[in-house]
Design a protein around this nucleic acid. Structure first.
Lengths: 339, 339
DNA sequence: TTGTAGGCGTTATCAA
DNA sequence: TTGATAACGCCTACAA
């Protein structure tokens, strides 16, 4: 059995109260007492039982994140980076990170959120991959449960969030394609109910319209944000009688698949065909050719989210409720940019 | 405040005992009583307080995983897939997955393991990226704490694990390079203390020796398992007076960087230079050219690990203590394989 | 400055 | 079949 506070107290001939307060840094403990307590506790390998502490303090010192994993063999590096960021920042604040997986909008997803909320397993949650109408926002907001999000759904609730002006930056990406001389530009997006799909496609439309270019329906494809999806979508596009000269992808992962399909068609990406992504996942500057993208600091965004959640949980007012991050357009060879 | 079991009991005019037992499926409760209890509890939105339950039951219904994140902007997709697999399987067994991050062998890592163990935040742990001598194995084993690992360290303790015969399969990979006619083969590895480094390099040596080829010291490089590291290592290799004609990489992520460097040197990978990786991360079949690799079912391995841990925790004897997974050699274009 | 005592919500033991 | 009661380990008024 693990060592309890009572064991430490008994060992020292003190009451559990004193030990508890010494360890928690209260100032009504003699310095000398505190010193011995801390030392003895460390020697004995004492660590407070979390369950007991949680029960008493009514908080879990944990934050939750439910990975929107669509399928087995889910390996979008975006999430590795996102989780690493949350984990690091959570640790800095003394929080644990509880992770579960659930298919978006599935029954499992609902059950998991409900269970974590009701059972107080976590003190707050981080959400991303927001949907246009997001039941999670409604559910958490209505239950008064703390949460922060990356991207904002369109639900009429007030909550802290970090976001990127997706529409604007996607239009910047498309502007870049246009400035390279492209007119017949395709778009490979994601599921219709996702906020990023709506925003990024809006950015696509915005830029095309501003340049008086026509959006050709057969060049607009809904895919699933995976490399495999991008590969298939691009294969279809390149089979067309009049294929596009440029393809703007909703994310980097999709773009990788497009690069592959292009190569199979014998096209030199950057010369015969321009390809651009969005996200800026670490390591994707090493694709062939290197991928032009909108680079968002995913790790920092994840840190920022946890920071905001931690502030909320400890009652610190947030200086900014809606943090807007400015990503960077990285022009690389996949759109003919310099090496 | 959340609804407690007492609220439910009061509502029904029953004792908390009966409610608890009805909900937990004990058979000494009248069927009729159970039915009303279950229904009322659901209607009231009751969910057991986890902290109280854990305190009483002396288990957390959670398993832990500490992500060996070396640096910020950590985005190896291997881990996204690994976490997704663990999360899914944990959920199936009613376990939560607690994730933290720590730099390998850092003080933080030690503190986190110690804290989770002593505070009983988790019932068991999953380890990977094992080191040759792994303090984690010693620490957990000596404390009698349940854990499972992917790969085995060389510590003299008995514990359940899943592993791949890394040496054998890396030698298969190198055999393949040799069979393509290569003799001047380079190796880009990882940190010296990692089990996979020792094993995969041993596989390299084994194959080279078997074919009576010379291992040229300047063609053996220690890198850091990242794309960036692979890029730099390959750049150095290709700057040599007599560069290699083939490069075997310790993992896929490293290989991606090698592909990039090769392109910068104007080399057509698959024709001028052969490149091979190891891991088989989902989506990496779409690199340019598609990467020859040893494909391990990462998702399934993660599931299997959690399954074994769950069995251990519930006292089921494991049918196999050391599960050996057979990966597959995927020959693709990066080594001149067929399209 | 230190100790006593009660309770957080649940489950297990024992008695009815 | 059900209920009273105690205990899990900790924290915190309150008392000393």
């Amino acid at each position: 059995m693990a060592i309890t506070i009572r064991d430490v107290a008994r060992q020292l001939g003190l009451s559990t109260t004193t030990v508890s307060r010494a360890l928690d840094g209260y100032d009504d403990v003699a310095e000398e007492t505190r010193a011995t307590v801390i030392q003895t506790a460390a020697e004995m390998g004492y660590a407070p039982n979390q369950a007991a502490r949680q029960l008493r303090r009514k908080r879990a010192d944990a934050i939750g994140y439910i990975l929107p994993a669509e399928a087995p063999r889910f390996s979008d590096p975006f999430f590795a980076e996102f989780i690493a960021g949350m984990g690091d920042q959570a640790a800095r604040h003394g929080y644990d990170l509880l992770v579960s997986t659930a298919s978006p909008s599935s029954k499992t997803e609902q059950e998991t959120y409900a269970r974590w909320l009701h059972s107080r397993k976590v003190d707050g949650m981080v959400l991303n991959r927001m949907r246009l109408q997001d039941w999670r926002v409604q559910f958490l907001a209505q239950n008064g449960f703390p949460f922060v999000t990356f991207e904002r759904s369109r639900d009429p609730y007030e909550y802290p969030s970090v976001e990127v002006d997706e529409q604007h930056w996607f239009s910047v990406l498309v502007d870049h394609l246009v400035s390279c001389g492209h007119e017949r530009i395709a778009y490979i997006g994601g599921p219709d109910d996702l906020k990023i799909e709506a925003d990024r496609f809006a950015g696509f439309t915005q830029s095309m319209t501003a340049h008086e270019l026509i959006i050709i329906p057969e060049l607009v494809i809904h895919s699933d944000l995976t490399t495999e999806g991008g590969y298939k979508a691009a294969t279809n596009l390149l089979h067309l009688d009049r294929p596009p000269t440029a393809i703007a992808c909703i994310n980097d992962t999709t773009a990788i698949g497009v690069l592959h399909a292009s190569a199979e068609f014998g096209l030199a990406v950057g010369r015969d065909l321009a390809v651009a992504g969005f996200d800026g996942v670490e390591g994707f500057e090493h694709t062939l050719p290197p991928l032009t993208t909108i680079n968002q600091p995913i790790y920092q965004i994840a840190c920022q989210l946890v920071q905001m959640l931690a502030d909320t949980l400890s009652g610190n007012p947030l200086s900014e409720q809606h943090v807007v991050i400015k990503p960077v357009l990285e022009i690389r060879q996949s759109t003919g940019g310099q090496t």
